[in-house]
Design a protein around this nucleic acid. Structure first.
Lengths: 186, 186
DNA sequence: CCAGGTATGTAGCGACTGCTACGTTCGCTT
DNA sequence: AAGCGAACGTAGCAGTCGCTACATACCTGG
């Protein structure tokens, strides 16, 4: 028999994806060690052993989630280049409404709330994710756009406002606003 | 001696303002009965007695907070009418940045996160508050605006996007975006 | 071969959670 | 005066929280 790797070693890097999956479906605020450990196939004892503290675990987890988000953006950075700003907005909103994105959006608002309360790690993760989005948006701007940098910031503000209004059930309000602002193809 | 009202009766209506003050400074997610009761000068026993359940308490509290928010908007609905959409945005952002508003903004993001997770009462409160803001915004639109309804929805989307980016430390990004979009006086 | 550090399981600690059982005091009605 | 239900205090329950003490395993280096 070959060397049978009975137990793959348990490290932070092997735990973080499992923890991420758990918080994506169960939320970040109410996350406690025992359910997290169960989702990762360990015990709370081991989570503290590897991360030292629950707070450190959350910080590490947020950093990892930010990286996952950046990778997802890279993957979504398809070659399709929109012709107008309105097309860019429409394309992004269509992606954001996808059911696969909803667990992530729900998590996102918890991160925003944590950042607004200055919880450790939240600001950093949120800023990193928004920075990624901004860079990606700049690359998505139409070819002949007169002000890609400013335009990307403009679109990001509008898109995030739409996302928030959608989260609280005012998505139609945002849609009408985008139309009135000329930011959606009529 | 006149009839001395030794103990003012404790009702929901007398408790809600005290509870609101507590969640404004301590947050809504981690609120537990005993600290809430202490802030209101009672015991957890009485909170359950009056509200029946912690969940019902939170629902009632969110409804009350929405009313307080509406009243605050009414009070802020000064007679000053801005001349341009950019002036409207600038005036509102100036109000939102005021230190007195920060506890409320922090609470707001918790409400958004709760609404995104379909916690009972959160969606309703958030929708009510956004509805109030929208109505107020329509009344704030410049006199000769070509499309006050659509314009108010447009500005609300932009303003909420700016608020979110500000909460996560990307306020400057939003400012630059508003400038590029012609939504801030240069 | 065996000392020693790393990794892991089991139990449990004190604090806190939402909530309840029980008893008491009050104002009101009959 | 007797009764009665609402209003309230005290004590406590079962459960969960983050975290730790203790006892093993396990592989590695001397």
């Amino acid at each position: 028999m070959a060397d049978a790797p009975k137990k793959p070693p348990m490290t932070k890097d092997s735990l973080l994806p499992l923890l991420t999956a758990h918080v994506l479906s169960h939320g970040l605020g109410g996350a406690s060690l025992r359910p997290l450990a169960k989702a990762a196939g360990t015990s709370d004892r081991m989570l503290i052993y590897h991360f030292g503290t629950k707070e450190a675990l959350i910080v590490d987890l947020l950093g990892y989630i930010a990286k996952v988000y950046a990778a997802a953006l890279d993957a979504a950075m398809g070659s399709e280049r929109a012709a107008t700003r309105a097309d860019v907005v429409a394309s992004i909103l269509a992606h954001g409404d996808a059911p696969a994105m909803q667990p992530f959006m729900r998590l996102w608002w918890e991160i925003v709330a944590g950042a607004a309360r200055d919880l450790p790690g939240y600001q950093l993760a949120a800023q990193a994710m928004m920075g990624e989005l901004l860079g990606w948006l700049e690359g998505q701007m139409p070819a002949g756009d007169p002000d890609p940098q400013g335009g990307a910031r403009y679109l990001m503000t509008v898109i995030e406002g739409t996302a928030m209004l959608t989260a609280v059930g005012h998505g139609d309000t945002a849609q009408q606003g985008l139309l009135a602002g000329g930011l959606l193809p009529s």
